[in-house]
C-alpha cells in the first residue's frame, strides 16, 4: 500500500491533517514506540505525520504556579532542564531510568503518554502529581486530568482528529514530597512493577496523599483506600503502611508470576510512600 508522508511545522497544520485523514492517519513523534509497530506492520497508516518539525511543540516553562511541558519535548530535555530540576527534582530524576541516552534523546513526553503503555514510567508519576493534558483538534482545545485521559492498555481518550499539545503539572505550595520506583529485568528497561507516591504534610501529619501502582495492571491505578489510610498519619513520626490492593488487576507477564508482581509492588509502594513522606518533611 502507498504511504504518504507529511511534516507539519505547527500544531494547527498537524490538526488540519488529522482532521482531513482521521483514522487513516498516524502521528509519529520520537518513534521510540511506534517504529517497532510500523516495522512489524501492526500499524499500517496511509498517512504518516511527522511531528518532529513542530518547533513550538518542545518547551518547558513555569506559568501561574504550574510547570508546562510541550508534548514534543524529549525525555532528555526534561532530564537536563534546570527548571525541572529546581521545581520537581524527583520528577527530573526519573528520566535517567527511561531506556538509554539514545531513547531519551529522541523520544518525547507526549508520545510516551499517548502510547499509554502500562509499563511506562511517566504516567504513574504524573498522575500522583495531579497533571493535566491539553488535547487539541482543528477547532478545539481542552484540558483534562491525565487520570481520565488514560483509559486502558495502549488506550487513551484521544479521538482520531485529536492530539496532545501540552502537559501541565501543578506545583504544590504545601510541604510536599514525591517518589517513584520501578522493578525491571535490567535497569532502564520497561517496568514489570512500579509505584509512585505524592504526599503533602501539615502540622497534623499527612494532609494529602496520592498513590499509584503502575505496570502490573492494564494501566496505572490509583489506590484511593491506601490514600485515605495515610491521611492524618505521621504527626508522631512513624507511618503505618499496609499497601495491599486488589490482585485481580494484575496482568500476566512473560518474565514473572502474578504473585511475584504483587509482592514486589507492595515493596515498591511501601518504599515510595516512605520516601515521599521523608522528602515532604525535608521540604
Amino acid at each position: 500500500m502507498n504511504m504518504f508522508y507529511y511534516e507539519p511545522k505547527t500544531f494547527q497544520e498537524a490538526c488540519d491533517l488529522l482532521n482531513k485523514y482521521q483514522d487513516d492517519a498516524k502521528l509519529i513523534a520520537g518513534g521510540q514506540s511506534l517504529m517497532i509497530l510500523l516495522r512489524q506492520k501492526v500499524v499500517v497508516p496511509e498517512h504518516l505525520i511527522n511531528l518532529k518539525n513542530i518547533k513550538e511543540g518542545a518547551y518547558i516553562k513555569e506559568e501561574g504556579g504550574e510547570l508546562k511541558i510541550g508534548a514534543l519535548t524529549t525525555h532528555r530535555q526534561i532530564e537536563k532542564s534546570p527548571l525541572v530540576r529546581e521545581k520537581l527534582p524527583a520528577f527530573a530524576e526519573v528520566f535517567s531510568g527511561i531506556g538509554s541516552v539514545q531513547v531519551r534523546n529522541w523520544g518525547t513526553i507526549g508520545g510516551n503518554l499517548a502510547h499509554s503503555d502500562p509499563a511506562g514510567d511517566l504516567a504513574p508519576i504524573l498522575m500522583v502529581l495531579g497533571a493535566r493534558v491539553r488535547v487539541i483538534s482543528k477547532s478545539n482545545s481542552n484540558e483534562m486530568p491525565l487520570e481520565s485521559f488514560i483509559t486502558g492498555y495502549l488506550e487513551t481518550k484521544l479521538r482520531a482528529s485529536e492530539m496532545l499539545q501540552e502537559i501541565i503539572i501543578p506545583l504544590s505550595k504545601a510541604k510536599s514530597g514525591m517518589a517513584y520506583e520501578k522493578e525491571s529485568v535490567r535497569a532502564g528497561d520497561m517496568a514489570m512493577a512500579s509505584a509512585a507516591a505524592f504526599i503533602e504534610i501539615g502540622s497534623k501529619g499527612i494532609t494529602r496523599a496520592k498513590v499509584v501502582v503502575g505496570a502490573v495492571g492494564e494501566m496505572p491505578i490509583r489506590l484511593e483506600n491506601l490514600e485515605k489510610e495515610l491521611q492524618g498519619q505521621g504527626s508522631k513520626g512513624e507511618l503505618h503502611i499496609d499497601p495491599k490492593f486488589d490482585q485481580s488487576i494484575i496482568r500476566m507477564d512473560p518474565y514473572v508470576s502474578k504473585e511475584y508482581k504483587y509482592e514486589i509492588s507492595k515493596v515498591k509502594l511501601r518504599n515510595v510512600i516512605q520516601t515521599a513522606f521523608e522528602r515532604a518533611k525535608q521540604a
Binding site: 508522508y5 511534516e7 509519529i28 520520537g30 518513534g31 521510540q32 517504529m35 517497532i36 504518516l48 511527522n50 518532529k52 532528555r76 541516552v101 539514545q102 531513547v103 534523546n105 529522541w106
Partner: peptide, 13 residues
Amino acid sequence: GMSVKSCLILALQ
C-alpha cells in the same frame, strides 16, 4: 551531536 538508535528513526526525520 546526539546519539540515537538509527533503527528507531524514520530516515525522513
